[in-house]
């Protein structure tokens, strides 16, 4: 798919946006480790947890998209519509990040009974704790993530959706690890510049998705063939 390099880029550069929310978590993960090597190990597992969740969410979204296609296929080209939704979402997210659209203040995370457990996992000694902390971090609400999930939903194939989110997740890894290792690898000015590039990268991904969606919007046309396992026929949603 043409978007994949762009998705990777969005992840890599978009992570500058992620650091606002997830950066402190990465720091908390690293706080317990005595050496930078140990920290790197923990950061790696933390990111692995996140990417794992993204992958599951991606496959879920893709299955959802596929299910919708199966149900509504005769009436509408669902993948194309989803690609349009994803594109729109990503463009808006990109423009927000670039500062072209005004950003509304973000409310605090609602008090959640699991918060204490999450905190304990972040500082946990065991590698499994850090991995699980990453797994739950992946579930935190994030606009960028939703945009990517919409994109995954539009792929129409569980494996492609999964791949989309894994690629996006891998893209976020370097910045998150850097943040967890000490954060100050890049200066503020550099980070701002990267942030701006990332924002436009998002917009570009969105535009490509929009174009793909618009191209597929010829009513009744054959949905684009995906991987060998997900043929173009309508699919039954489970037993």
């Amino acid at each position: 798919m043409i978007e994949w390099p762009l998705i990777l880029g969005s992840g890599m550069l978009g992570a500058a946006h992620c650091l606002g929310m997830c950066g402190p978590f990465a720091l908390a993960v690293g706080a317990a480790s005595p050496t930078w090597r140990a920290n790197l190990w923990r950061q790696g597992w933390y990111s692995a947890g996140r990417v794992f969740t993204y992958a599951v969410l991606g496959s879920t979204a893709a299955f959802g998209g596929r299910w919708l296609t199966g149900r509504l296929g005769p009436w509408a080209n669902i993948p194309a519509l989803l690609a349009l939704v994803a594109g729109g979402f990503l463009v808006v997210q990109g423009l927000l990040a670039a500062g072209v659209l005004p950003r509304k203040g973000v409310g605090g995370i609602a008090a959640c009974p699991g918060a204490a457990a999450f905190k304990a996992l972040l500082g946990g000694r065991a590698t499994s704790d850090v991995f699980l902390a990453g797994l739950f971090t992946g579930l935190l609400p994030c606009g960028l993530l939703y945009g990517m999930l919409a994109l995954a939903a539009s792929t129409g194939s569980v494996l492609a959706g999964l791949a989309t989110m894994v690629i996006f997740g891998l893209g976020t890894v370097p910045a998150m690890i850097a943040a967890g290792l000490g954060g100050s690898v890049l200066g503020v000015a550099t980070r701002q510049r990267i942030h701006a590039v990332a924002a436009w990268c998002l917009v570009l991904t969105g535009v490509v998705s929009l174009a793909r969606g618009a191209g597929g919007l010829s009513w009744g046309s054959e949905p684009a063939p995906g991987c060998p396992f997900c043929g173009p026929e309508p699919i039954q949603a489970g037993p």
């Binding site: 457990a117 699980l132 699919i235």
Partner: peptide, 23 residues
Amino acid sequence: MTRLGIAIFFSMNVMVFTFLLWS
């Protein structure tokens, strides 16, 4: 706690495989 977390991890895996089977 770890027990709950691991169960969630395994369940998420099962979900992905199930989606694959349902597809």
